[in-house]
């Protein structure tokens, strides 16, 4: 009996010694204990797949195709996302001139959406206040624009929209990361942000002025 107990103890120690404890860091992929249908012959996004010549499961759309879509509606304009119009390009159709005003009706929820998207996408560089002092600016990205510069605050809405989507100078375009309506929302929020820098006390409704502490 004592040999059996000894053997059992040794086996346990050996098992723990080999297998370790829960949560131990490991470079090896997880063991799938009952791997019956864990990995099926189907496509998962963004993983290697030998079926296609380029070896990826997420295929790029064939050139010349457009995604199925609905018309986007803003005010009395409606346009497909792939069509050219003021809503999608920020320009007056047939010209290179930018449209002066945001085609979307600007209200509180639209600006709030813009604020949300601005803080995700723009603030790392341009900073939460738009002054170009985001966290990235401290790490060798020296040419970040201050969005309160007169050069930028006097641009028409359409030009800002174009810059968000297609970039300018060292800034890359965000057209593939931020949808068209979100880009317009960012423009609307940027206007609010710029206005906040040049605001005077008369801009605040009379009954709210007391809330501002000097």
């Amino acid at each position: 009996m004592r040999y059996f107990l000894l053997a059992l103890m040794l086996a346990t120690v050996a098992a723990v010694g080999v297998a370790g404890f829960r949560g131990t860091l490991s470079r090896k992929p997880p063991i799938e204990v009952f791997p019956d249908m864990d990995r099926q012959a189907k496509l998962r996004p963004q993983v290697p797949n030998a079926f296609f010549p380029d070896g990826r499961s997420s295929q790029l759309p064939p050139s010349g195709t457009v995604a199925r879509s609905r018309k986007m509606v803003a005010g009395n304009e409606s346009v497909y996302p792939f069509e050219e119009g003021p809503l999608t390009t920020g320009r007056i159709t047939g010209t290179t001139n930018f449209i002066e005003l945001n085609p979307f009706p600007v209200n509180v929820s639209f600006i709030a959406r813009g604020q949300d998207r601005y803080q995700i996408t723009c603030s790392p560089c341009h900073g939460a206040q738009g002054d170009g002092k985001g966290s990235i600016s401290k790490y060798g990205f020296a040419t970040i624009a201050n969005l309160h510069d007169k050069r930028i605050s006097t641009q028409p809405d359409g030009e800002l929209f174009n810059t968000v989507g297609h970039g300018k100078n060292t800034m890359s375009g965000y057209a593939s990361n931020v949808s068209i309506d979100d880009r317009w929302a960012i423009v609307a929020y940027l206007r609010a942000l710029q206005l906040s820098r040049v605001a005077v006390i008369e801009d605040v409704p009379a009954d709210k002025r007391a809330l501002l502490k000097k």
Partner: peptide, 30 residues
């Protein structure tokens, strides 16, 4: 709890979430 937890593969590029998300404060959705 044993088979998956702790899996930490070597990535082709040593991207650090601690640097980007914590130190730089970049939102996950960027």
């Amino acid at each position: 709890k044993y088979t998956r937890v702790g899996y930490q593969p070597i990535q082709p590029v040593g991207f650090s979430h601690a640097t980007h998300a914590d130190q730089l404060g970049i939102d996950c959705r960027y």
